[in-house]
């Protein structure tokens, strides 16, 4: 039996959008898939050693369930993002959903390969020492080399 493959492009760096790539990558790896995730633009934030700045915002996020209806004018007040992030993290914990850190290390344990977009690193002048060591740096062509041969390829 040939090994199935999955490739994911992770482009978002918010708490809610960080879950799908890590959940799908870790699950596919558990099912025996060879998995690569290409982190580009804001997705690169998910490769930082410290994930505490990965947040969720109620602003421009009208589908986000809120305990009480909240007008946009209120959502834009200082501290709302931190509060929404704290509440979301509490909710995730209460429901036994893994933290991003846990899911990311489960991915690494299962040999999911992380590729950081070199162009994005240069563009935003990121310091590579702030990223986890278990990622490779590469470009679109490098990713295509793997993605062209996959069974599942997703853009998140």
């Amino acid at each position: 039996m040939t090994t199935k493959k999955m490739a994911i492009i992770a482009t978002k760096g918010t708490l809610d959008m960080a879950y799908p790539p890590f959940i799908l990558a870790s699950t596919a790896a558990a099912l025996g898939y060879e998995v690569q995730v290409f982190f580009t633009f804001y997705g690169l934030q998910l490769l930082r050693k410290d994930l505490s700045n990965v947040m969720i915002s109620p602003l421009a996020n009208p589908a986000m369930p809120m305990p009480v209806p909240m007008p946009v004018m209120v959502q834009m007040l200082p501290g709302m993002e931190s509060m929404a992030t704290m509440m979301m993290k509490q909710k995730l914990k209460k429901h036994g959903v893994a933290s991003l850190e846990e899911l990311r290390s489960l991915c690494l344990e299962a040999d999911v390969k992380f590729i950081a977009c070199q162009m994005t690193v240069d563009l935003f002048e990121f310091d590579k020492s702030e990223f986890i060591e278990q990622c490779e740096y590469g470009g679109a062509a490098m990713f295509m080399g793997f993605a062209g041969d996959t069974d599942i390829c997703l853009f998140v």
Binding site: A30, G96, V97, A98, A110
Partner: peptide
Amino acid sequence: GLSCPLPILKTKKALSDMASGQVLKMIATD
């Protein structure tokens, strides 16, 4: 108490150091 995908990921982990033919019992609430 654990939600998707943790029960599956932990099942995979538990199986990894078991021998072929051995049986794993797993309990979940999800």
